[in-house]
């Protein structure tokens, strides 16, 4: 019985895999170093390929995968008021959007932004559906196995939002409190880890598609706290009465740009452009535009 079940499952998955593989190979185009074979590159680091070509998905275009539900880093602009307007007439704005525009300009490429779920954005570069990820993406070692990261361009501070007058503190979050996070973010990954690894256990953490849904759940009393980046947290607290941010930071992380593992040429080009933007103060100007220094 067990064997039969295993066989059926295997057969079903084979069908799906075949379908998936068949497609990947046909769409691969010119670029060779793709997600599926990350295991062969594992641990060898960024500079092993020696390939200096940019290895783009589409010639002349820098395709950026992101999740535009993450203010102030990226969001959908009202009408066509954002600095970026896509072919489909959807406009985006935010820190990451403007940084990407600046980098693309330096590289002489046309920026194309693809908006999707956060975890899909990470997969998109591995699947060769996008060139770079700028999505308030924090550096993590396990992500480094699938993606290659630039130096940090911003510091992400995650904080905890609770209801005013709540008994929740930074120290008792692990005592059976129900915590909301955004699916696929480091907040979710850290918080849902086992207590031995510093998390609160999967059963105490809920993942929402976006921060707004998590905050709404908190307002409704469905959860006790929300772990989220500081920028959006302040905006949510301002918009929703009766919420407050716990003093202190929950975690501090480095926001980096990521490309597919092994795409050294593109990584280097993006890194160079980023460093230039950092040096000439463009980066600070962009950040200041969206986050008012208080």
């Amino acid at each position: 019985m067990k064997k039969l079940f295993a066989l059926v499952m295997a057969a079903a998955m084979m069908v799906t895999l075949l379908a998936a593989c068949g497609n990947t190979t046909t769409n691969n185009g010119g670029s060779a170093n793709n997600g599926g074979n990350a295991s062969t590159n594992e641990g060898t680091g960024d500079e092993n390929t020696g390939d200096t070509s940019l290895n783009l998905v589409e010639e002349g275009k820098l395709i950026m995968a992101t999740n535009c539900q993450f203010p102030p880093y990226e969001m959908v602009a009202d009408g066509t008021s954002g600095p970026y307007v896509g072919e489909d007439g959807v406009s985006y704005e935010g820190i990451d959007v403007e940084i990407a525009l600046a980098i693309a300009e330096k590289l002489g490429l046309e920026l194309v932004i693809d908006d999707m779920d956060f975890d899909s954005a990470l997969m998109a570069v591995q699947n060769n559906a996008a060139d770079v990820v700028l999505a308030g993406l924090s550096y993590r070692e396990d992500r480094d196995e699938e993606l290659d990261f630039t130096d940090k361009y911003a510091t992400g501070i995650q904080v905890v939002i609770v209801k005013e007058g709540s008994d929740v503190t930074m120290d008792n979050l692990g005592d059976g409190k129900l915590i909301g996070t955004q699916r696929g973010t480091t907040g979710y990954i850290y918080a849902s880890d086992t207590p031995e690894n510093g998390g609160y256990g999967e059963e105490n953490v809920l993942a929402y598609d976006n921060g707004a849904l998590a905050v709404q759940a908190l307002v409704d009393g469905a959860i006790d706290a929300v772990i989220i980046d500081q920028g959006p947290a302040e905006a949510y607290v301002a918009a929703n009465e009766g919420l407050t941010i716990l003093p202190g930071t929950w975690v501090e992380e480095d926001y980096c740009i990521a490309v597919d593992e092994g795409n050294a040429g593109l990584l280097e080009a993006v890194q160079t452009a980023l460093s230039e933007l950092q040096a000439d103060g463009t980066l600070d100007t962009i950040v200041a535009k969206y986050i008012s220094a208080e």
Partner: peptide, 19 residues
């Protein structure tokens, strides 16, 4: 990531912070 009504409703929520 299809850009239909729900997508834009969510986008507006990220601006107003009121779903």
């Amino acid at each position: 990531s299809g850009k239909e009504i729900v997508y834009f409703a969510r986008a507006i929520v990220t601006k107003t912070y009121e779903p």
